[in-house]
């Protein structure tokens, strides 16, 4: 098991803010839009240096999405930002018609995704966004795992032509990926090679998967951990290569088990190479108020849950 250490913890939304700050300096076509959540999205450095390229939309997310679609006409690259719930579920039809079906180069950047926004509760804890976004033809769906990767992804999507959903969050978590990484859309990242079980994790669950891998190693089980930061397009080759070796899989995501990363992986497995798969995900329910740590434990999204799932998957191997 490859060793991962960290010296600092930060929130992934701050990685987004840092990426926007850099984009503001190097790409004159990047425009930021926000629906009354500038502080939460960490947009202040971008706005300070590029006030003319920031559009305050007020609490009008539907308008923000369609204005973003319009901004692409003329060559701008709009980054529409708000909480994940308001960036997806609230404005699904605007994204579907004005952005995806119209093929517009809009970047929908969503913070506070999943359970880990904590105390605000289920109204704000969207657990269906990956599913909704990946079902849209032509939509790219990205869920990076830490501050550095979120920053790199933010910069990378500006150079990619087409609609993107970029999902990140509020909690402060370890920074364990390289500061100078180049983010490749659609290319899974091998966190640690192993032979007994493949753990495919996305977003905040990647760090949990690393901790699970260490626990499994202590028990003599070799886990292969792969960071699926791009859920669509999915790196099928990396998945198939891994399960060809380990012959069983675990998926781990801060999302409903229906419609998320796990289902995307299951499609690959069912179609190509049938091996047992276990899900670590929210079991088709809404969240609730609580601290992020309490919620992750109650809804079964901890390293211990991944360890248990890995053992179940291994036990089912033929």
């Amino acid at each position: 098991m490859k060793k991962y250490t960290f010296t600092e913890k930060k929130d992934t939304r701050s990685g987004f803010g840092a990426g926007m700050h850099e984009l503001g300096q190097k790409n004159p076509n990047v425009v930021a839009l926000c629906a009354d959540l500038v502080g939460s999205l960490k947009l202040e450095p971008f706005i300070k240096e590029n006030p003319e390229r920031f559009v305050q939309c007020g609490i009008s997310e539907a308008n923000m999405i369609s204005v973003s679609a319009g901004l692409t006409i003329g060559g701008k690259i709009p980054f529409a930002t708000t909480f994940a719930n308001f960036a997806t579920g609230r404005v699904y039809d605007q994204i579907r018609q004005s952005v995806a079906y119209s093929g517009k180069n809009v970047k929908i950047c969503a913070s506070h995704a999943g359970l880990t926004l904590g105390e605000d509760g289920a109204t704000h804890q969207i657990l269906e966004d990956i599913g909704m976004m990946k079902m849209l033809p032509g939509m790219t769906v990205i869920n990076p795992c830490d501050y550095n990767q979120t920053k790199a992804a933010t910069i990378a999507i500006a150079d990619y032509e087409g609609p993107v959903y970029l999902r990140f969050g509020r909690p402060v978590i370890p920074i364990f990926t390289a500061a100078d990484q180049v983010f490749e859309i659609g290319k899974a990242w091998m966190v640690s090679e192993g032979t007994d079980v493949s753990i495919f994790a996305t977003g905040h669950m990647v760090w949990e998967a690393i901790q699970a891998g260490e626990q499994l190693e202590a028990e003599g089980i070799s886990a292969e951990i792969i960071n699926i930061h791009t859920i669509k397009p999915l790196d099928e080759e990396a998945i198939l290569k891994s399960i060809a070796k380990t012959r069983c899989a675990v998926s781990a995501e801060e999302h409903n088990r229906i419609g998320g990363l796990g289902d995307s992986i299951a499609q690959v497995i069912v179609k190509n190479d049938l091996v047992p798969q276990e899900y670590v995900a929210v079991d088709d329910s809404f969240g609730e108020s609580g601290t992020p740590a309490q919620l992750m434990e109650k809804y079964g999204l901890t390293a211990a849950d991944i360890v248990a799932a890995a053992k179940r998957a291994i036990a089912k191997k033929k």
């Binding site: 425009v31 308008n63 204005v67 973003s68 901004l71 006409i73 003329g74 701008k76 018609q97 004005s98």
Partner: peptide, 15 residues
């Protein structure tokens, strides 16, 4: 949705 889109295109022209 169209007026919002038109507003975006108008902002793009201004920029």
């Amino acid at each position: 949705q169209g007026m919002s889109v038109a507003i975006g295109a108008a902002l793009s022209k201004k920029l």
